[in-house]
Amino acid sequence: MSEQTTVEKEDTQLNEQTKEWQPSILAILCNWCSYAGADLAGSARMQYPETVRIVRVPCSGRADPMFVLKGFQKGFDGVMVLGCHPGDCHYAKGNYYARRRIAMTQDLLKALGIPAERFHFEWVSASEGNRFSALIKEFTRQLQELGPFEGVDR
């Protein structure tokens, strides 16, 4: 992969304090639940690694599989999609559509040989700030175990 197409290098720098490699995570968050959950984590000063770059979408149903693919093409070490719990969608059924779509996206990534551990899909509600911060910690740790993503063209 040429330098121009990789995610900016600062994303994959070593953490100053821990000297541990920090992965870069693309997180696609539904506006009504998951983004609010992330917000809660922030306003409640819950600590989580600064590895994550959040893209806010109106609904997990808006999380186009192409966002996920583009994330991997551009060299993110991990991609996650978070949405409202089934039954809680602000638009009644957006996350039901997302559920099928994301399930097929997981299968596509598998077919393409992208390790399943690099993609994370989860339901996170607006009150689950704790859970959001735990998720990021866990995903970061998981990616640290895997190491940097070599890119789709290795």
Binding site: M1, S2, P65, L69, K70, Q73, L112, G151, V152, D153
Partner: peptide
């Protein structure tokens, strides 16, 4: 390039 072709075929 390979990564752009990957994006095309994967999508």
């Amino acid at each position: 390039t390979t990564d752009e072709a990957w994006m095309f075929h994967a999508t």
